[in-house]
Amino acid sequence: MKSIKIRRISGTILYHGFIWIFGFFMIYPILWLVASSFKDEVEIFQKSYSLIPSSLQFDNYVQGWKGFGGITFGTFFKNSFVIVILSTIGQVASSALVAYGFARIKFVGQKVLFGCMIVTMLLPSQVLMIPQYILFSKLGWVNSFKPLVVPSYFGYPFFIFLMMQFMEGIPRELDEAARIDGCNQWGIFFRILLPLIRPAMITSAIFSFYWKWQDFFGPLLYIKKPNLYPVSLALKLFSDPAAVTDWGAMFAMSTLSLVPVFIIFVMCQKYIVEGISTTGLKG
C-alpha cells in the first residue's frame, strides 16, 4: 500500500510539474511582450531572453498612447470597440434566429439550404475577397465600418451550427406546451428557446469578440483613413521600414490591446466550457 501511495504521489508531482513547465513555455511569448513593454529599445534586443526589466520604462505607454498624426490610441480603441460590439450583436442575434429556423421549423428546401450553409464554412476567405470588395466598392461602403459590420447581421455559419446543435438537445415537448399556452413561433423563440440557449449564445459572442478584435486583413482591405483604424491596424503604424521603429511603444500598445481579451476570457471562461461541452447532447 505504501509503495502504491508513493507512486501516486510521484505521478501527481510529475504531472503537475510537466503542466507547469509546458504552460510556462506556452505563455512565455506573452510574458516577454509584457516585460518588453517596460524596457528601452537597447535592453529589448540586448537581453531579449530576460523577463525582468532593469528599470521600468512607463514612457513607452505614454509615447504609444499619443498615436500618430494627432490621432491617439484612444481613437483606435474606440473604433475597435464600435466594430466588435456591433458585429458581435449582429452575428449572435442573426445566427440564433437562423438556427431556430433550421432546428425547429420545417420548410421546403431546408436540407438544401442547410447543405449550402455548411459548404460556406469550407470556403477559404481568400475566395470571397475580390467579389466582396467589388460589391462594397459599388455600394460606396469603402472607407467606412459598414463592410466590417453589416455582413455580421446575416448570420455566421459556425455559430448557426453551434446553436442548432444546442437547440437539438432541448426537448420539443417544451415547444408543444408553449403552443398550448398560446405562443406562436416568435413567442416560442423569444420566451422558450432563447433563454435556454444562453450558454451557446455567450460562447458565440466570445468567439465573435475574439475574431473581430484581432482581425487585421478586413480593416486593411476596406479602411484607408487613419482616423478609422482599429487597434489591430494601428499597431502596424509603429513599424516603418523607412524610419525608426519605436519597439517599446509598439509592445506597450500591444499589451494594452490584450487587456479586453483577457478580461472577457476571465469573466466568461465558464460559459465557453459549458457552451461547447453541452453542444450536441440530445434531450
Score class of each variant (00 low, 15 high):
W141L: 11
K236F: 09
I180V: 14
I130Q: 04
F58G: 07
W141H: 13
L122I: 08
A93D: 04
K212V: 03
S55P: 02
L196F: 01
F159A: 02
S87Y: 13
K224L: 07
S48V: 08
G155E: 06
G283E: 02
C116E: 00
G64I: 07
F77D: 00
Q126G: 08
L31K: 03
S257R: 05
G169V: 06
W32T: 08
Y15N: 05
W213N: 11
G275K: 15
Y271A: 12
V82S: 03
G17A: 15
V231I: 13
R104G: 01
Y222I: 10
F38R: 11
A234F: 03
I202D: 08
W186R: 13
F161K: 01
L31C: 04
S54D: 09
G90H: 02
T72L: 06
P199L: 10
F251A: 00
A35L: 08
Q185L: 14
D59R: 15
S254H: 05
S10D: 06
K47T: 10
S152E: 00
Q165Y: 09
M26H: 02
W213I: 10
K2P: 01
R191V: 04
F107C: 10
F159C: 05
S125M: 10
P195H: 11
F189M: 15
V142C: 04
P131V: 10
V112M: 07
K146E: 02
M129K: 11
K2T: 12
R191F: 13
C268E: 13
S144L: 06
S48N: 13
F166Y: 12
Q214C: 07
N143R: 12
E168I: 07
F76I: 05
R179C: 02
Y100V: 06
K39V: 09
I272D: 10
I160M: 08
M1Q: 09
G275H: 15
W20I: 14
I44W: 00
L31Q: 03
A178D: 04
F216K: 00
V112H: 03
I206L: 11
I180P: 06
Q269R: 08
P230K: 01
R179I: 07
G17E: 13
G280R: 06
Q46Y: 06
D240C: 04
Q165C: 02
F262W: 09
G187M: 10
F159I: 04
M121L: 10
S257V: 02
P199E: 14
